[in-house]
């Protein structure tokens, strides 16, 4: 059965205040280059899934996100699937 490498990106939804992102932005305002804004801090989780095909793999990842990896009250997610090279 093929193995797939997953890169899962989790971000706070726009209506959730992200004090970490705000703190980063405020600290950069004091630096010499204040051109960047809109910082949001999320997390990235990588793992491997064995599945018969890519479509099945996608279903498994979604299920894992809903069960544990993501709290959809406050977070949204996206992921990329790569064929794992042996």
């Amino acid at each position: 059965m093929p193995s797939y490498k997953i890169n899962l990106n989790i971000m706070p939804i726009p209506s959730v205040l992200d004090p970490q992102g705000e703190a980063i932005e405020n600290s950069l305002k004091n630096s010499s280059n204040p051109s960047a804004s809109g910082f949001r801090v999320g997390k990235k989780i990588t793992f491997t899934v064995r599945a018969s095909n890519k479509r099945k793999c996608k279903e498994i990842v979604k299920d894992l996100c809903q069960k544990l990896l993501v709290n959809e009250v406050i977070e949204e997610y996206s992921f990329e699937i790569y064929d794992e090279k042996n």
Partner: peptide, 17 residues
Amino acid sequence: LTELKLLPGTLLRNKSL
């Protein structure tokens, strides 16, 4: 209990961090 969905909503980091 919120993670279990026995209660609504969730608890975020304190605003002050």
